[in-house]
Design a protein around this nucleic acid. Sequence first.
DNA 1: ATAGGGTTAG
Length: 674
Amino acid sequence: MAFSPSAPSPSTPPLQLPHRLDTIRSMDELKQIQAAVLKTPSLQSPPVLAKILSFCALSSSPHIAHARSLLAHIDNPSLLMYNTVFHSLSRSNRSLVSISIMFYEDMLEKDLRPDSFTFPYLLKLFANSQALQAGEALHAHAIKMGLDANVYVRNNLMSLYAVCGEVRSIQKLFDGFPEKDLVSWTTLISGYTKAGLAKKAVKVFEEMMSENLRADGVTMVAVLSACAELGDLELGRNLHRYIGARQIDMDVFVGNALVDMYSKCGDVDSAYQLFNEMPVRNVVSWNSIISGLVNNKEFKQALELFRQMQRQGIEPDPFTLVGALNSCASLGALELGQWVHAYINRNGIEADGITGNALVDMYSKCGRIDRAKEVFGGMAHKDVYTYTSMIVGLAMHGRGEEALELFAAMSSAGVKPNEVTFVGVLSACSHAGLVDVGLRHFESMSAVYGLVPQIEHYGCVVDMFGRAGRLDKAQDLISSMPMEPDAFIWGSLLGACRNHGDVALGETVAKLLLDVEPQEEGAYVLMSNLYTAGNRRSDGLRMRKAMRANKVRKTPGCSLIEIDGVIHEFRKGEELHPQAKEVYAMVDEFAHRLNIDSSQDEARHHSERLAMAFGLIGSRPDTPLRIVKNLRVCHDCHSVIKYVSRLYNREIVLRDRYRFHRFKNGWCSCNEFW
DNA sequence: ATAGGGTTAG
């Protein structure tokens, strides 16, 4: 739209200038207009001047000196002119703090006193940039002018302090004056939520109720957001009922807040129902339900909604893309993930920031660590999330050395690691068998970075010792931990006992594990395997029996495989898939070719074998099979997959709960180290 | 001419 047919020609009479103002494109053009304005006092109206001044201030290289000289040339600029300029600037998202301070000072020099409009505009402007210091200075001015009691000024001050996380200042302003309106209450509530004090936010709401004030939709959004943070479904339902009872207008904000509340409280069905019943939806509504489904592990449904949204012609924004990419990452849906990436490129969306981070994560979780590295390399702004995703990704792919190199690069780049980064670093060391290096990093966590090791970090180190066969060291570490060992710790040690055939220690640890989680199968299965491997079959069978007798909960094994963009799901022993017959025939063929006695092979219908069989039947022979499993792959299946990779000359990439296995030619990238 | 609201990762 460089040329518009209705654009005025240079001969346009000066009186039509105000209309030209909206189409100013260059400084030259502006100077022309300005010359005309200065000659004609009748054109010097607040909106005209505000447009000219805002153009100067908002242009990519601000012409502040120019703007100020223009103001100097006008006889007696009015307060309204300045206010109009501040109003206009306050609508911009750019940081205009110093520019507006200059205008403000010019204004004071002309002996104009700010009024109850000046302060709100300026405070909003400062809030946009979280300019706390400037805001405090203005607060002092407002007090001096006796305007701090004005409810608009005060609410804007509260809002600025809310954005800056200064909860105490908000409360002080709130308490300091008798005149409070609904906006004051709402600002206080959302201030507490923003500061992470959701409980307090709800308390304020209750206090407001007890003063018999009626909330409106905005207040409800604020308190719903606090409720979502708390995950308090009971409270959320009450708030929902309150909205109905008080006939508060269910606009799209309230609807979105309810959808978000229900999904964050774990009631994704209600969230979905509400979403469907919303009369008006916008992109945030879609984002809320998609991210809600993702957080409730309904990834397929999340992707279905993403597709539905496309069909309805709603344009996704970065929030949407992150939600879709997260689903792809969890499901291992590489093809769809690539489609999202192509969409990002096609639409000129930057693969940076949170979108870039989500892409890195998607590619590495879908087994394409090479692509993850490409995206990572192309990112201009790498933050702690970016590095952490990449480090965790490399660790999952067994590329421990590379993960550690990247960790060093991260330090050189001046990006500070956090607790999650160290989970990545330590698991990299663990998977790569780098015990000493891992221990050094573990110690540096607190000594160098001032981070307190959490139980996950101890878990990584226990795992590290366990894999290396240093069961004594693992035990020492557990007894030195400042917290109670949890199921992960004992499970990890028991797994190590199993791998190293330490029956005696295993028995002790299994008891401890059962103390922590009596209803889970982990301890029974590991002990049964340990007994069986140690030629104590009868003890092994005893464990199996005990497991049945105690009604132990089993997490059903589930594997996913994507073929031509469709995710197929297989559960252990299940025959629901339309091609189940062929799949089971294929699985039996593996066993037959491997000379395994099917009746002895407990793992023969494990989900990863079903998914692999289906992949062999249904995909092109030159493509790798990519399987995602929800549990750790068992030893038997690991051997079978190695064998199949050679027999069928197929690359098979399996992501299990803990890491990637890349099978090729009868070998696995994990080198039996998992 | 003025204030308060919903969605984002490892």
